[in-house]
Amino acid sequence: MLRIVFMGTPDFAVPTLEALHGWSGCQVVAVITAPDKPAGRGQKLNESAVKQVAVQLGLPVLQPTNLKSPEFQEELRSYAADLQVIVAFRMLPEAVWNMPHLGSINIHASLLPQYRGAAPINWALIHGEQVTGVTSFFLRHEIDTGDLIYQDEVAIEPEDDFGSLYGKLKQAGAALALRTVQAIAAGTAPSTPQTDRGDLRPAPKLQKETGRLDFNQPAEALVNLVRGLSPIPTAFTHLPDGRGLKVFRAQALPGAPTAETPLGAWLTDGRSHLRVQTADGQLDLLDVQLEGKKRMPVGDFLRGFKLEMKKEE
């Protein structure tokens, strides 16, 4: 039976842990996850989603603060893992990922080598992709560059945003991880070097400014930005009176700028729609949140908050 150490932190990793634990061909001998973090007014310690599930399953949990610590590495070595499976965890030192005799594999939420980096789901949506997927690969020195094992495609539907696509990919990732581990156990897993191409797009960590809506951009590009950041961390802008506004859903409408509706103009009937003139059309805001208030459909927002702007007749 294959002895596995699992590493992961957010709920994206939970279905994979559950799938591996449920397969009779392997034994998850330990789970490595992030240390508990204080959260909320009372600064109550918040356990990672992976830790909560691991405890429910009765699995040993390690929460190192320093992966290079000799004490941690000695404890990790004591579990005598044949293979390590990593999903949504932090970068590992070579002494850790190279420890098992079968190596370490990672599940990445893109079709590598496209979208290497920390935020592949977000960037695939921001760039308007229609297909993405999940990849299993062997860990190597450079991030997300190891030899490919398997890939499964997942369609991106027009209505998908980060939240819905995240849900699809975490389930697809679990199925792929199980298939990969089964192939490694059987000695049939392929190992194909990645080939860099000129059209590769990176997936760097999101910054706050990533979400700022620039109305000089085409309307469809802004819709994709909204989709890629909804429901978190969320695209944002500021109303003409300066108040911050988060945007969770939007659609593109035709209509080039004119003298009456110049670039950046806000348009509303005060009842049912709120739009902004962009480079090639109008961004129709559908689901918004005023700073300090709750998320709501734009019709409810317009009925509840006075906007200082010109209303359409």
Rank of each mutant, 00 (worst) to 15 (best):
A221G: 05
E209R: 14
N216K: 15
A203C: 10
D196Q: 14
R227Q: 13
G198V: 03
P233F: 07
F248D: 02
E159L: 08
K168H: 12
S230I: 04
Q171M: 05
P233L: 02
G128L: 10
I149L: 13
K205F: 14
L225P: 02
K170L: 02
S136V: 07
V154E: 06
A155V: 13
L213N: 06
T180E: 05
L200W: 11
T145A: 14
W123L: 01
F162H: 14
A203G: 11
Y115E: 05
I184Y: 04
N224G: 05
V134R: 03
S191P: 02
L206H: 04
F236I: 00
D147W: 07
A119W: 01
A155F: 00
V131R: 12
I143N: 07
V181D: 03
R179G: 03
K168S: 05
Q182F: 06
G167H: 12
R212A: 15
A219N: 09
D199A: 11
P204K: 12
A172C: 01
F162D: 03
H238F: 14
R116F: 02
G228K: 06
A221F: 01
P193R: 04
D147A: 15
V223G: 02
G133S: 10
Q151A: 09
F138M: 10
R197T: 15
D214P: 01
F137W: 08
Q217R: 15
I126S: 04
V134D: 05
R249V: 03
W123K: 02
V247T: 04
N216P: 06
G211P: 05
F236Q: 09
S191K: 15
G173S: 09
L213G: 03
G163C: 09
H141M: 07
G173R: 06
L139W: 04
D241Y: 06
A219L: 09
L178C: 04
T145R: 14
W123H: 13
K205W: 14
A186N: 06
T195M: 13
D147K: 11
P240A: 08
Q207T: 14
K246R: 15
A219D: 07
R201E: 08
P231G: 02
R197F: 13
L229R: 01
Q194M: 12
D161S: 11
T210L: 10
P158N: 10
R179P: 01
D144S: 08
F138N: 04
A189Y: 08
